[in-house]
């Protein structure tokens, strides 16, 4: 069986399909968040060295993962839009940016709230923290740039170049704890060795991470639908959507 993927890259098909999927992703995000929080606060034990303050990990790490991952996906969509000139790609890139910025902000702020009781400081110009802060500026820069240019196609192109150049920062964030021996601790979870934490702690963190994924997909799809409707407002399908009041 072959699926015609190009069919789904047309806004007229994508718009109603996304509309059907969004409630499912929100539902999954809510259920996983409840399960994740339950494990985080009622199953996972007290940490031997950090006591209870480590429980910030259940939002800090998923938020930090999402901040980097969303950036890469955003840069990929933006790059695809630049090369293939497909309408949906640039829309997806723009739809992801605010959510990525939100997760970056959450990662930074929860890091500060974790750093104060653990390291005795809210902020340090440590390699990982600084590169994560640069990520926030990249998101803000991308959003401001695409919003500042009136011509949609030019805005997409300029944004794509910024997003692609900025992608260099993501491996820097990820490997910063290896390359520079500064304040931030090393990775607790890696693909190459066993995780250095209790199983229930890891489980809580992973469930919260999947919840963050589901949330991001739901929000990005909702935002993509709005961008799509706005850009395609004079087309037949958009007129039809607008005729049937929501």
């Amino acid at each position: 069986m072959s699926i015609n993927w190009f069919k789904y890259s047309s806004p007229a098909t994508f718009y109603p399909l996304a509309g059907k999927l969004i409630p499912w992703f929100y539902g999954l995000a809510a259920m996983l968040t409840i399960a994740g929080l339950y494990i985080s606060f009622f199953v996972a034990p007290t940490d031997a060295t950090q006591g209870e303050s480590y429980r910030i990990i259940f939002i800090h790490v998923p938020a930090a993962w999402m901040s980097m991952f969303i950036y890469l996906v955003m840069a990929m969509w933006a790059g695809l839009g630049l090369v293939m000139n497909t309408r949906l790609s640039s829309i997806m890139a723009q739809a992801l940016a605010p959510t990525g910025a939100m997760f970056t902000f959450v990662a930074l702020i929860t890091g500060a709230f974790w750093g104060k009781p653990t390291w005795g400081t809210w902020w340090e110009w440590d390699a990982r923290m600084t590169s994560e802060l640069i990520l926030l500026f990249l998101y803000i820069g991308y959003m401001s740039l695409t919003a500042a240019i009136d011509d949609v196609r030019r805005a997409d192109k300029a944004g794509a170049i910024l997003a692609l150049v900025g992608a260099v920062n993501v491996p820097i964030i990820y490997f910063s704890v290896k390359w520079w021996n500064t304040l931030h601790q090393g990775a607790s979870v890696s693909l190459t060795r066993a995780p250095s934490m209790a199983k229930t702690m890891l489980l809580g963190m992973l469930i919260m991470a999947i919840a963050a994924w589901m949330y991001s997909i739901a929000v990005a799809l909702s935002r993509a639908r709005l961008l799509m409707l706005e850009r395609e407002k004079s087309t037949v399908w958009a007129q039809e959507v607008l005729e049937q009041k929501p």
Binding site: T46, G51, E52, S53, R55, I56, I59, H60, A63, P98, T99, M102, F105, V106, I109, T110, F113, W114, K116, P117, Y215, V219, S222, R223, L226
Partner: peptide, 26 residues
């Protein structure tokens, strides 16, 4: 939270505010 309530709940509260804000703006 073993004396760390301010930091733990502060983190969760700020995250909640961010999510509510994003959904509200959307």
């Amino acid at each position: 939270m073993g004396g760390r309530g301010f930091y733990v709940w502060g983190s969760y509260l700020i995250t909640l505010v961010c999510i509510v804000l994003e959904l509200g703006l959307l």
